[in-house]
Design a protein around this nucleic acid. Sequence first.
RNA 1: CAAGUAAGCUGGACAGCCGCGUGGGCAGGUCGAAAGGCCGUUCAUGAGGAAAGUCCGGGCUCCGUAGGGCAAGGAUAACGGGUAACGCCCGCCGAAGGCGACUUCAGGAAAAGUGCAACAGAGAUAUACCGCCUUGCUUUUGCAAGGUAAGGGUGGAAAGGCGGAGAUAAGCGCCCGCCCGAUGACUGGGAACUGCUCAUCGCUGUAAACUCUAUCCGGAGCAACACCGUGGAAACGCAUGAGAGCCGGCCCGGCUGCGUUUGGGAGGUGGCUGGAGCGCAGCGGCAACGCUGCGCCUAGAUAGAUGGCUGUCUUAAAGGACAGAACCCGGCUUACAGGCUCACUUGUACC
RNA 2: CCGGGUGUGGCGAAGCUUGGUAUCGCGCUUGGUUCGGGUCCAAGAGGCCGCAGGUUCAAAUCCUGUCACUCGGA
Length: 112
Amino acid sequence: MKYTVSLKENHIFRRLYRKGSTVADGRLALYVRKNGRPTNRLGLTVSTKVGHAVVRNRLRRRLREIYRLHEHELVRGVDLVVVARVRAGSSRYQQLEESFLRLCRKLELVEK
RNA sequence: CAAGUAAGCUGGACAGCCGCGUGGGCAGGUCGAAAGGCCGUUCAUGAGGAAAGUCCGGGCUCCGUAGGGCAAGGAUAACGGGUAACGCCCGCCGAAGGCGACUUCAGGAAAAGUGCAACAGAGAUAUACCGCCUUGCUUUUGCAAGGUAAGGGUGGAAAGGCGGAGAUAAGCGCCCGCCCGAUGACUGGGAACUGCUCAUCGCUGUAAACUCUAUCCGGAGCAACACCGUGGAAACGCAUGAGAGCCGGCCCGGCUGCGUUUGGGAGGUGGCUGGAGCGCAGCGGCAACGCUGCGCCUAGAUAGAUGGCUGUCUUAAAGGACAGAACCCGGCUUACAGGCUCACUUGUACC
RNA sequence: CCGGGUGUGGCGAAGCUUGGUAUCGCGCUUGGUUCGGGUCCAAGAGGCCGCAGGUUCAAAUCCUGUCACUCGGA
């Protein structure tokens, strides 16, 4: 992921939940805010409610892969947090990809 | 062939493209005074049988402690062995279950003491309600005193059980035969224990109630612990418009009181994986396991690396059951689609 | 990683220490009171005490395992 670093600090997550713009469907929720940097910052949230460790790890990897494959289509200079909901744990890869892209278009994150 | 019992193994394989963690190499690029960092490229390697629950036992680290003992609190509980150790494992004994292979068992002490046993029942660890018998009074009837545990009824449990004779006022292991149980002696066994033996005795249950006996245990945990450590804080020293530090090639200019020590929030580095390790062979042992020889090195992350797409094969099914290392080992418990191997038991048929 | 607590009718709680009969409040049903409703009065239904084993004559209670929820500390 060339233009992206991962988002780790908890206070940035909390700032995003409070001030960022939100869009969601049954599987995922996205929080976005401009960060004034040349690169993006990506945070993933998968809570224990979604499933066991195996389920959560697989979901995190899939979300990271979806972001990696579509990174070049997205705008730069934003903080982006993807929250997985309970139904995402039993969803297939293609369903997750479809949800992610639809939510990104709603937030006008897709450049081309 | 059918039904079953027990032990063990396995938990998809191969290939291509894109991508990730760790370690190594590189005549490469970039930053830097250097050490080195970052990028690139290439090679190797990269989750489990339970990694899970965190129920036991150890290593390791710190705290406490002269060494040790006692008390409190907790754990375990037939016997012998294995092990670094264990509450684990193996063997064996006993009890319960099963036609059997086999399975299950917190399986010490109730004759050291205390407690509890609802309801029912006369009576719950001692007792006389009905009944039986004797004596006295009264003389259709019955009343009082005493003896009796054979019969009745209650209960989970009622003073060993069944049968019999004598004896007795009526009765009773009071006596006899058989059986059951406890203790001691003897036999066999290394021991728990055992029995065609002998003697004595006949004792409710509960210790997953208190308790007693024997053995074991100091406490906390890798977010342990060690090191580096900006800001802020404290102490000491220096300085008070001169000097010092930072930005800058230098002047001008701008900013800041400065240095040392203590302390250890955020962050970083170590701890961090070669170990009671794995495989094969031989020997000892019924076994758990041990000894010897040879060979091998096999994750080490820190918001946490294994994912996406495609093809082929095995298959009933591979878009898969349960499930993700987090300091490391030995066990236990719990979850689990299926597949395979070996041994044994019972039944049926045939030779 | 370490250590606690809770689970009982539809809801909220007691009972567990010291084993034997599961109780209380709200709610629900029926009847009465009222012109009708509420209030009030009377009667009633509804529980394998989270699950599975064990100890015991007998378990919500004691013991073991397990599941879910929840709290605290480093």
